[in-house]
Structure formats: C-alpha cells, structure tokens
C-alpha cells in the first residue's frame, strides 16, 4: 500500500494533499480542485518532471549547451539520463528546438539555444 503526504504545487494555493492506494484505487484528499486530484494521483504512481541537462559540444567557442526534455519524464530515470548523456558530445552548429539523443531511454531531448560554429 502506497501512501504519501505532500503539498500540491499546481497552483499557489498550496493545498496539503494525502494520496493513498486503497484496494487498487487511488484516493486523494485535501485537494480543492480536480487538478489537485490529478496531481496527487500522478505523484503517488509515477511522478513526472520537465528536466534540463548540460551537454558538451564540439566545434564552438561555447563548451556546453542546455537541453530539455520535450515532455515531462519520470523522476525515477532523471539521474540515469544525466549519467548517460555526460559521455555524449554534440557537434556545432545547433539550433534552438533541435532534437538530440533521441534514443536515450525513450526520452527526447531538445536544444534550448542556438550554437554557432567557431
């Protein structure tokens, strides 16, 4: 049985949520709206986040570029991704919005700024 107490961060009201798995169904209490319930369920079962990472680049005066996940990803694999992409070097030029490392654990990463050659 999973059980968690936490603050809802969907809006500034900051309701204190209780989420609990009872007989296979998720019960959320303490929320004031439907969005809070949805958040409570996902936090208990599979919390997801937008994550950003620094990646090394070759062929530019800039040494690194920040990439972000195109969709919220499970918290549980953020550290694993961070470790994997540490070994990868991207090649300049890059444009904001370019997708890189598409095969990394099924997560798509997107470049967040333009990187020119030299």
């Amino acid at each position: 049985m999973k059980k968690m107490e936490f603050t809802c961060i969907v809006c500034p009201r900051g309701c204190q949520l209780n989420a609990e798995e009872i007989d296979g169904a998720i019960q959320v209490s303490g929320n004031s709206c439907a969005r809070g319930k949805e958040y409570g369920v996902s936090e208990l079962l599979n919390p997801v986040r937008n994550a950003t990472f620094n990646m090394r680049i070759e062929g530019s005066s800039k040494k690194i570029v920040a990439v972000k996940t195109t969709q919220p990803m499970p918290v549980s694999s953020i550290l694993e991704i961070a470790k994997k992409i540490k070994r990868v070097k991207l090649k300049a030029p890059l444009k904001e919005g370019d997708i890189v490392c598409e095969d990394t654990l099924g997560i798509r990463l997107m470049v967040t700024s333009d990187i020119s050659i030299g």
């Binding site: 937008n50 994550a51 950003t52 920040a66 972000k68 904001e96 967040t112 700024s113």
Partner: peptide, 16 residues
C-alpha cells in the same frame, strides 16, 4: 525550466 507559465502558458527554460 519553470519560466513563463503565467505569461506564455508554457514551461520554458531561462534562455528560451
């Protein structure tokens, strides 16, 4: 990320 949720209605990084 965490910028622009109110102004643009999407979650952007600082540089974006």
């Amino acid at each position: 990320s965490g910028f622009g949720l109110r102004y643009f209605g999407e979650e952007l990084t600082g540089p974006e």
